[in-house]
């Protein structure tokens, strides 16, 4: 029900394209896991997952062409999520860096 005219054929084409991309990325993430990339393994897996997530959100969940308020709200949600992950890590990773017991 967006302001733009709805094009059924283009929509179906976009859905199938996204599905194909998601399949390729799934194959890619499994293949990458079996290659030793050192510390990069996890970064690659998360980068691929994030790309897949953006594709699903933009096309399947109609963020593209939808209200910009949705994008603003989700961004603030992800920001909150990053804080939730980052602050415990800040604590965990900074323990004993001074070499003083209890600091």
């Amino acid at each position: 029900m967006s302001k733009h005219r709805y094009d059924p054929q283009a929509t179906v084409r976009a859905y199938i394209m996204v599905f194909a991309c998601l399949m390729i990325f799934t194959a890619l993430t499994v293949a990458a896991a079996f290659v030793d990339l050192g510390a990069m393994n996890n970064a690659v897996a998360m980068a691929i997952a994030a790309t897949k997530a953006v594709l699903v959100a933009m096309i399947f969940m109609h963020l593209r062409g939808g209200s910009p308020l949705n994008v603003l709200w989700i961004s603030s949600g992800i920001f909150g999520f990053v804080i939730m992950i980052a602050f415990p890590l800040l604590d965990l990773l900074s323990r004993n860096i001074l070499g003083i017991p209890g600091k």
Binding site: T29, A33, D36, A45
Partner: peptide, 15 residues
């Protein structure tokens, strides 16, 4: 699930 799959199933599979 897109995030759970690599996080749970694909840790250091090369080792």
């Amino acid at each position: 699930w897109i995030f759970l799959f690599p996080l749970l199933y694909l840790i250091q599979r090369h080792g």
